[in-house]
């Protein structure tokens, strides 16, 4: 049982990234691969600052800014140098690998002897439930914040930008600026997942971000299926489905491990699972 709760907590930690991918993929229709790098960046910044005995609350703005800068770079390359969004993201992600390695100094930093977000507060005496409660609380706050932003005038403008650039230009919106801000927000959220996971797993590894974008995409795709299924239209509902998607994703991975699948095959399982999520709704509409 604890095994599944662990997966549930991991799903919660990763759902911040899911919300980020929701913004880039669903709102802006940009496939943003920066994610792999900005997720690790968040974890790297967390590891360095925690090791230097920073307060874990004070680390959050630094993590957000680091992620946002990564997103801004991708955005600038995409909008001003007019390079395909996918390629822009790959460029920044690749560069970030070196930056992360330089910052971290080595490929793996354990965070066992420093206090962290999940151990510093006590809601429940059982440490697993305690982590669950803290993770949940954290994500609730993030979701409320993102939900609020998306419903403001600025948020409406952002959502319209992904829909009809001719309309938004005619309505006084600088589409390039919007895309850059959107990518900044998305990657800040992704870095925040790195912040959470590093503390939850008690280590930062330079390779922890490899292929993580597919997990985020999977969450959004599951969310999308749920949106259709439950006929959800409002923004808050859509964000909740992404979080459900992120949790479901981790539960499925935990299940595959529990039935004895070789952990080396985990990425293969992940990719196949995402493929399945994409295919199943199509089969339904085709029949």
């Amino acid at each position: 049982m604890e095994f599944y709760i662990t997966a549930l907590i991991l799903g919660l930690c990763l759902s911040s990234m899911g919300l980020g991918i929701f913004i880039t993929m669903k709102i802006f229709r940009i496939p943003d691969i920066t994610t792999d790098g900005s997720y690790t960046l968040g974890a790297v910044v967390t590891a360095i600052l925690l090791s230097n005995h920073w307060n874990m609350g004070a680390i959050i703005p630094v993590v957000l800014i680091a992620g946002a800068i990564a997103g801004i770079l991708t955005g600038l390359i995409h909008t001003y140098i007019k390079i395909d969004a996918l390629l822009s993201g790959i460029l920044v992600m690749t560069a970030l690998y070196s930056i992360n390695l330089t910052l971290l100094g080595r490929s793996n930093v354990p965070l066992l002897d420093v206090s962290n977000l999940f151990s510093v507060f006590t809601v429940f005496s059982n440490s697993v439930y305690n982590s669950l409660a803290i993770g949940l609380l954290f994500i609730v706050v993030i979701t409320l914040l993102v939900g609020y932003i998306l419903r403001t005038d600025f948020g409406i403008a952002m959502r319209a930008t992904g829909n009809s650039t001719s309309m938004t230009r005619a309505l006084g919106i600088n589409n390039n600026k919007m895309k850059i801000i959107g990518l900044a927000i998305a990657n800040a959220l992704t870095a925040l997942s790195g912040y959470l996971v590093a503390q939850y797993q008690n280590f930062t590894d330079i390779n922890m971000g490899i292929g993580i974008v597919i997990t985020g995409l999977g969450s959004v795709l599951i969310g999308e299926a749920l949106i259709k299924w439950w006929n959800i239209t409002g923004i808050p509902g859509q964000l909740i489905t992404v979080i459900c998607g992120s949790i479901l994703f981790q539960l499925v991975l935990a299940f595959t491990l529990s039935i004895g699948v070789d952990p080396n095959l985990l990425k293969l399982v992940t990719a196949s699972f995402v493929l399945l999520i994409v295919i199943i709704p199509r089969l339904r509409t085709a029949s």
């Binding site: 319209a160 829909n163 009809s164 309309m167 938004t168 309505l171 006084g172």
Partner: peptide, 19 residues
């Protein structure tokens, strides 16, 4: 071209009201 498909009528009008 003049409206955003995924947004509600209300949100479209909101955007127009702050052009």
């Amino acid at each position: 071209k003049g409206t955003a498909s995924d947004l509600s009528i209300l949100d479209n009008f909101r955007l127009a009201a702050i052009r």
